[in-house]
Design a binder for these strands. Structure first.
Lengths: 242, 242
DNA sequence: TCAGCGGAGTGGTCGGACCACTATGGCTCC
DNA sequence: GGAGCCATAGTGGTCCGACCACTCCGCTGA
């Protein structure tokens, strides 16, 4: 593997725009976008990459670390650096950070986005869900209703909606919803919401969503999901007004 | 500013989970999520932070760089490191990376997500848009129809939809749509689409969206926007089938 | 034949040095 | 006395070299 990834680049002085690390990030991204680096492929070593781009290993490591947290690259200790599969889950994992660091009015906005996507995903799921997928949904629905432990309820609640999103058949949408429902995000909002005795209402809403799925009724599913998220949204709005 | 941010942390041996850099990232994120670091606030120097967490400056720099590309921190050369305002635009800038690195079927999924959000945003805009905002939209619409330069058309096309998204009143949604419409993403898809003489159709669709905005008719706006994005979506689907 | 064991190669961490830039304060000059 | 310049301390940016921890693979010996 002597092939240099940067062959053909202008040999003149570097463009001098931004930091060298930022430049390295852009160059690696360009290599992937341009198809010279395929998903799953192994990159040259940090030392070689740094030499090829004419920067120090330290700067190259910062670039690699940045692309790692973005879900573009994956570093395996002792083995090498690899391009991820670039699937929705890999790249949208950082979406959870947004949810975790948002507060106040932005939480309402996030819930509004979730309401829109979740209702559509649930409608799609109603049309496409298979018996096996439906059984999985029902498993979490039953488990949710069989316990009083808030932690367990939250876990099955998450899984309930995750299965539905998966049944919608759009991995990208499912990955975004996963981020919008990240554990810490929901734990923060759910805690206060459920403390006000919303368990019964939540169960009713989940049951309504389930009925719509069984009936393969997209419009009913859309309405039920929108109402479900909307309830939390309105509660949070009221909290912020105080 | 002698106050240490890490006071109160367990003094025992480090948790030993993951790399030290990853740990540093989580700790800084926790400081922000916990409210000990406010938006806009300045952090201690890299050297001090590294000393407080007991790691080297190199590792701390990687952590800071990672949080910088995520839009959580901002480093100003010669001045210091600051927490961003943590607004939707800051945190969702990375969404463009997803769009730029996605190919094949995932592009269709992204367009589907955009169709859902864009149609809702346009509907909201129809209900809420102000005369001033409407004038801005019309400016880009006129500019788009007054030129034949594809680059200029694309720029005003982006601005057209950006203004509408802004008028919807949900910054988070607007930021996501901005990522889904990032310049390189649209340039890749638009190029082929417009080459097939879709200019006339695009103009008709934009006109329909504009009419709905003027009439403050959310449902018409939703339908027009969904059809607009849907056209591209269907074209891309057909391309992939070949 | 294969289990065990090395060594080479790789990412992970560290410490130090120096450069580039910013901000602050005092100083000069008007 | 005030405005503008400028030296300087402090900060992030970059580079280097060393060593550690881990993985992988080929060699060795039973």
């Amino acid at each position: 593997m002597d092939e240099t990834l940067t062959q053909g680049a202008q040999p003149g002085p570097a463009p001098q725009k931004g930091t060298v690390t930022q430049r390295a990030i852009e160059q690696i991204k360009a290599l992937i976008a341009g198809g010279r680096l395929e998903p799953g492929q192994r990159l040259p070593t940090e030392r070689d990459l740094a030499a090829q781009l004419g920067i120090s290993r330290s700067s190259m490591r910062e670039a690699i670390r940045a692309l790692t947290v973005l879900g573009v690259l994956e570093a395996r200790h002792g083995s090498g650096i690899y391009v991820t599969q670039l699937e929705a889950g890999d790249l949208l994992e950082t979406f959870g950070v947004v949810a975790d660091l948002s507060r106040g009015p932005r939480l309402v906005e996030l819930l509004e986005v979730r309401r829109i996507l979740e209702s559509t995903a649930t409608a799609l799921a109603a049309a496409r869900i298979t018996p096996a997928q439906l059984a999985e949904v029902e498993k979490h629905l039953a488990a949710m209703n069989a316990t009083d432990d808030p932690e367990e309820i939250l876990a099955h609640d998450l899984a309930f909606h995750r299965e539905i999103a998966a049944a919608a058949g759009n991995d990208t949408m499912a990955a975004i919803l996963e981020g919008l429902s990240s554990r810490t995000f929901r734990a923060r909002v759910w805690r206060g919401y459920q403390e006000e005795g919303a368990f019964a209402r939540t169960r009713r809403e989940h049951a309504a969503i389930h009925r719509a799925l069984v009936a393969h009724d997209p419009e009913a599913a859309r309405a039920a999901a929108a109402a479900h998220v909307g309830e939390v949204e309105q509660w949070l709005r009221a909290q912020l007004d105080r």
